[in-house]
Nucleic acid binder design. Structure first.
Lengths: 100, 100
DNA sequence: TAGATACTTGCATGCTTGTGCAAGTATCCA
DNA sequence: TGGATACTTGCACAAGCATGCAAGTATCTA
């Protein structure tokens, strides 16, 4: 079983553990193309500056990626990375470890 | 795909997204028998009252279960539940949704 | 019964975090 | 060039959260 870096994992989970940020992630789940910040504003109850800040946190944690296009920033979900982190923890939780 | 209740999931992730709480969870991962609070104190850098409060949060979120035995409380990880929640989100994140 | 052990809880404190507003930067287009 | 659009950032503020200490409750044991 892979070792888990608790600090890193905790900050990823913390990033996902805020309602508006999780809403942003779920919104991006449902899109097969990158979305800009204005579009993403519609799914959560904060103003544009709040969304900007939430997206910054998600970017820093590797949850989303940004691509600049003119005056827009297009965000896409790092599906494989986030899913892998979650599954890694799920695996660790479900299987009793060897004391090794 | 199962619908996800964002509020509930966010509070579960928030509960897991604190370093000391995640340490407690990882500690419980490695135990095949319930552990009491004193024993769990060793794995995180807070005093007994802090551990007590963290375990309370984890209990309220369904992450762990308590069983009282005399003056001790024995905690065990709700492995199936937590793993399922994490995998459910991972599935949702990895598969592009139908607009349906 | 008295003291020890296991855990919880009230209180105070300091740090972090989410938020809106207003101002700022960058880019587009007429 | 000048205004509109897209996004970010500084500031202020309120609320939330983690923490230790000290006191409290519950249970055990000598």
């Amino acid at each position: 079983m892979k070792p888990i870096n608790i600090d890193n994992l905790a900050s990823l989970l913390k990033a996902l553990g805020e309602v508006n940020r999780l809403s942003l992630v779920c919104q991006l789940c449902d899109c097969d193309t990158p979305q800009n910040a204005t579009c993403l504003c519609s799914c959560c109850s904060v103003d544009a500056s709040g969304v900007s800040r939430h997206l910054k946190v998600l970017t820093q944690e590797g949850v989303v990626s940004v691509e600049k296009d003119g005056r827009e920033r297009n965000y896409s979900l790092n599906r494989a990375y986030v899913a892998q982190q979650l599954r890694n923890l799920a695996d660790r939780i479900e299987s009793i470890q060897e004391a090794s």
